[in-house]
Amino acid sequence: MIHAELRVTAVTDVTPGMRRITLTGEGLADFVPLAPDQQVKLFFGRDGRAPRMPEPPADRDPVTWYQRYLAIPAPERPWMRTYSVRHHRPDRREIDVDFVLHGPQGGEGPAARWAYAAGPGDVIGLVGPALSNLRTAGAPDWKLFVGDETALPAIGALLEDLGPDEHALVIAEVADGDEEQPWSSPARVDAHWVHRGNVSPGRSTVLVDAVRRAVFPPGEVFAWVSGEAAAVRAVRRHLVADRGVDKRHIAFTGYWRLALAQDDGLTTEDTAEREELQRELAEERGA
């Protein structure tokens, strides 16, 4: 895990609502990838200032690191958000991070507002990487990737990492056709885009409905599901209860929660979900 101060070198619009920020810095020399869907913590300074980063603990203990972050006085404490790494170019000490722009001026969130206004030379902080999911695929017959636009960077990286003999089904929710992205993968990929139209993100059922209607290929599946937490839970319940997918073959993460920010505490459902996953993982390790 690295603690680095990075600067923006390029800004590119992938779609009207998705902006790619290229970041570089000497700290990336020690960036060791963990998985295609790895995540990093990004730190955004307040009032246009460079973020005040927590001092890295000598033992690299993540709990200690987070305590140091919380110890920064509130007026100086940077906003912290979790993002996927879309591309990593170790020879150039660069990473790409894709940001969803939530409406005009980036919306209300500090990360999207920063991405909306970001330009070359702007400074951001990074801690990571960390695993997005605690489950990985074994040797399934095919893979299922499900998510909304917040999951697209990780899905894109996962597809690029597949082998030529693999088969993947992608079901992805976006606002409209302008937000669809081309996939690049050596595998055989069947992509199904669903549009929620004018319905606000997190308030549409189109993603869950599309998974329920989907015709699955034969054989054993490994499913990767991420996006809004309630939708992720609904998809997972359907896969287990209606499709008979083994829970051990589903990697799932609620990337965001409707009407709640990352700074907000865990809901009862969040806590129950985490406890259930920890029990399942403990059982798997003991098997």
Score class of each variant (00 low, 15 high):
residue 285 R to I: 11
residue 82 T to K: 03
residue 247 K to Y: 13
residue 29 A to S: 15
residue 185 S to R: 11
residue 253 T to Y: 13
residue 261 A to D: 11
residue 15 T to V: 03
residue 200 S to W: 11
residue 3 H to W: 05
residue 148 D to K: 01
residue 187 A to Q: 09
residue 228 E to S: 05
residue 13 D to T: 05
residue 100 V to R: 05
residue 36 P to Y: 06
residue 141 D to W: 10
residue 94 E to T: 02
residue 278 Q to C: 03
residue 225 V to Y: 13
residue 161 D to P: 06
residue 283 E to N: 12
residue 47 D to G: 15
residue 111 A to S: 12
residue 250 I to E: 09
residue 36 P to A: 02
residue 46 R to F: 08
residue 97 V to Y: 09
residue 203 R to F: 13
residue 228 E to R: 01
residue 26 E to Q: 11
residue 38 Q to V: 05
residue 1 M to F: 09
residue 92 R to P: 00
residue 134 L to Q: 12
residue 274 R to N: 03
residue 125 G to K: 12
residue 267 T to G: 00
residue 196 R to T: 00
residue 223 A to M: 03
residue 144 L to P: 00
residue 249 H to Q: 13
residue 66 Y to C: 02
residue 181 Q to W: 00
residue 98 D to V: 08
residue 97 V to G: 08
residue 212 R to N: 00
residue 95 I to H: 11
residue 142 W to I: 08
residue 15 T to N: 10
residue 22 T to D: 15
residue 240 V to Y: 07
residue 135 R to C: 01
residue 11 V to W: 06
residue 142 W to V: 10
residue 142 W to Q: 06
residue 176 D to M: 07
residue 192 H to Q: 14
residue 126 L to C: 12
residue 231 A to E: 09
residue 181 Q to R: 11
residue 103 G to T: 10
residue 219 G to W: 09
residue 173 E to P: 07
residue 188 R to F: 12
residue 221 V to P: 01
residue 207 L to D: 07
residue 211 V to P: 12
residue 51 P to E: 10
residue 153 P to H: 01
residue 223 A to T: 01
residue 256 W to R: 01
residue 35 A to E: 09
residue 146 V to T: 05
residue 222 F to A: 05
residue 6 L to T: 02
residue 144 L to Q: 05
residue 73 P to T: 10
residue 103 G to E: 10
residue 211 V to H: 07
residue 145 F to E: 08
residue 33 P to C: 05
residue 283 E to W: 06
residue 280 E to S: 07
residue 257 R to G: 01
residue 120 P to N: 06
residue 87 H to D: 14
residue 34 L to Q: 08
residue 137 A to H: 05
residue 26 E to Y: 05
residue 287 A to I: 10
residue 210 A to F: 10
residue 99 F to L: 07
residue 145 F to I: 10
residue 212 R to L: 02
residue 253 T to M: 11
residue 80 M to C: 03
residue 187 A to W: 06
residue 213 R to Q: 11
residue 261 A to S: 14
residue 48 G to T: 04
residue 285 R to H: 14
residue 129 P to F: 14
residue 248 R to W: 13
residue 44 F to T: 15
residue 54 P to Y: 03
residue 207 L to W: 00
residue 275 E to G: 05
residue 255 Y to C: 01
residue 137 A to N: 07
residue 51 P to S: 12
residue 25 G to F: 14
residue 44 F to V: 15
residue 242 D to H: 08
residue 92 R to Y: 06
residue 51 P to K: 13
residue 287 A to F: 12
residue 19 R to F: 11
residue 226 S to V: 01
residue 286 G to F: 06
residue 78 P to S: 11
residue 259 A to E: 05
residue 78 P to I: 10
residue 150 T to K: 04
residue 199 V to G: 01
residue 39 Q to C: 07
residue 240 V to F: 08
residue 207 L to G: 07
residue 172 A to Y: 02
residue 5 E to K: 15
residue 22 T to E: 14
residue 193 W to R: 04
residue 63 V to R: 12
residue 99 F to Q: 07
residue 6 L to R: 10
residue 281 L to G: 02
residue 286 G to Y: 13
residue 259 A to L: 03
residue 155 I to K: 11
residue 9 T to F: 09
residue 29 A to Y: 02
residue 174 V to N: 06
residue 205 T to R: 14
residue 23 L to F: 15
residue 11 V to I: 14
residue 135 R to P: 00
residue 40 V to M: 04
residue 224 W to G: 07
residue 281 L to D: 02
residue 10 A to D: 15
residue 265 G to N: 08
residue 26 E to W: 04
